[in-house]
């Protein structure tokens, strides 16, 4: 049972950040799906409801996604999903159920850097930036790689660069956590291949990504790229699969996603 001593609903991001850093047992409340599973005693809970961080806004060259935006909003946003071949909707669709996706939020998921995250896998394949109250704006990749630090994630920014993208996840039961996820994108000779749920957190397969951007894709080339990705990533084991199996799955999923992206051209 998680408990909250005191609740604050700050009116500015700065105030939220100040409370978070001043109180040692303070925490930001997201959708609470994961928070409630623990037995954390939160002294001061910070609710961001008053900061107008819920929703997806289209700008001339980017999408702005507030931290309190739910997965269901990502799934059903009619504008966002005309971009990137509907990548984000595809990524969040298999997650539990409609009710769950109405509850969980983008900000909490990204900030928590969950290894099993479908969303983080997909976001990494796009030109995504994270906006933090204190840390400012930085590439998602940089955020994921930096050590944990108290901060308030306020928004994501995704560049509307016309990228083609495809998403593949592999699950046994359809509403289970993925055994492996992959997202692939391609833009003017720049390829990106992301592999997640390894079960380590999602990361870019750098060499395979470079190869992807390089030249014409035929079936043999795609096999090579997939094998390259599988070879360069590290995989681990958990209840859902061994490292060895994940490596094999990686080849299949990357090939499938690359095939999809190539077909979009």
């Amino acid at each position: 049972m998680f408990t909250v001593g005191q609740l604050v609903q700050p009116d500015t991001v700065e105030e939220a950040y100040r409370i978070l850093t001043e109180k040692k047992d303070a925490a930001v409340l997201g959708g609470c799906a994961f928070l409630r599973m623990g037995s954390r005693a939160i002294g001061t809970a910070i609710d961001l409801s008053h900061l107008n961080l819920e929703g997806i806004t289209e700008h001339a060259d980017s999408f702005e996604i507030g931290a309190m935006t739910t997965f269901r909003m990502l799934e059903t946003d009619s504008v966002l999903n005309t971009f990137f071949d509907g990548l984000l909707a595809e990524a969040v669709k298999p997650i539990i159920g409609v009710q769950f996706r109405h509850a969980v939020t983008v900000g909490a998921t990204v900030f928590s850097k969950y290894g099993f995250s479908d969303l983080i896998t997909a976001l990494q394949a796009l030109d995504t930036e994270v906006e933090l109250a204190h840390g400012g704006r930085m590439a998602l990749e940089a955020f994921l790689n930096r050590p944990y630090e108290k901060d308030v994630l306020t928004r994501l920014w995704i560049r509307k660069d016309g990228r083609r993208a495809a998403y593949q996840s592999f699950r046994n039961s359809a509403s289970d956590f993925p055994i492996l996820t992959t997202a692939v994108s391609l833009l003017a000779g720049q390829g990106r291949i992301v592999v997640g749920a390894r079960p380590l957190k999602a990361a870019i397969a750098v060499q395979a990504s470079q190869e992807l951007g390089r030249m014409d894709l035929n079936s043999q080339r795609m096999d090579e790229i997939a094998a390259l990705a599988a070879g360069e990533m590290t995989f681990g084991a958990n209840m859902r699969g061994s490292a060895e199996y994940r490596r094999e799955l990686c080849k299949v999923l990357v090939k499938r996603a690359v095939t999809e992206v190539a077909a979009c051209k």
Partner: peptide, 11 residues
């Protein structure tokens, strides 16, 4: 919108 009442904080 259909939502999980077990996960939505009452406040």
């Amino acid at each position: 919108k259909p939502t999980l009442s077990c996960t939505a904080l009452s406040f």
